[in-house]
Amino acid sequence: MRIFEETIRLARTWSREIGVAATIVLLYAVLFFGGRTYFSAENFGDLFLANLPVLIVSLGMLLIILTGQIDISVGSQFAVCSVIAGVAAKAGMPVALAGLAACAAGALFGAIGGGLVAFLRIPSIVVTLAMMIALRDGLRWSTQGAWIENLPPGFQWLSLTQSRFTTAMAVLAVALVAATAAGLRYLKAGRAVLATGSSEAAARITGIRTDRVVFSVFALTGALTGLAAALNAMRFHQIPSNAGLGLEMKVIAAVVVGGAAITGGSGTVIGAVLGVILLGSVGTALTFLGVSAYWEQAIQGAIILAAVAINLAGRRRE
């Protein structure tokens, strides 16, 4: 009896995540009967690497959304950080240092945006919209649209084989996800993030420095964006100057599909990861099923709408 009640309670608290997971299972069940070729290890590896940036950035975006803010400049940050990683590598820096430079640049962008939001109390949508345009156009102007080519050997795949690189990235991804989830649940700082988003006024009188919390999640997201940009750059021979177009939308969509409340205070890492998996799989899955690429965006949009509607209906019942 107790176990039964406990199961119901758990199912209720995790209902959103369970819903997304069920949809993913359904999607793959359809695929399994529709096109077996989808299930090759190679496909999965490619799919994973292609979505790794979304996954990494969505961990940061989740934190930002949990505090009740939003950052739509991550796509532009991503582009600039990619170029910085490439330029640093070409200048002869060791790969690790080039990656670190990209992270630092991202953290700086995040800190600037976060500072404006947290300390000057400018709405985050305004700040990051400005940042999005400024970074993107600044980059276009300084590179003149040229791609970075002739990267030093050892940059691509971290001089590993592609499959080794994929394994290493998988380990890194699992570690990042686990660290974020644990930090959010067991660290005081993580609880402060949720508290800030749940009620900023209550957080402040509880003694939480909400401005610092907001500032930190933006800076952290910037650093994660830099990391994602550097790792993504390593998959190719050259670095385009327009990387990360639309990344912000993919990331925000994944977090929201994963059940996070756009108004803050509620959402989980598991949910965000499931959101990334679902949205990441849909596109490729449709191609494999022979659905025209024109439909891809529309279907993704429909999934986002459905997820948000279900989410809202669930909240209203509470």
């Binding site: 660290l187 005081k188 508290a195 749940s198 006024a201 209550a202 509880t206 003694g207 409340a261 205070g265």
Partner: peptide
């Protein structure tokens, strides 16, 4: 004015103020 966190559990609402004052970094 209500000073509760609506999205957080009862236990956490009660515990947070005390924890914020302590030097422990985990909950």
């Amino acid at each position: 004015q209500p000073a509760l966190f609506p999205h957080l559990t009862v236990a956490e609402n009660i515990a947070l103020p005390m924890e914020m004052g302590s030097s422990r970094q985990t909950v």
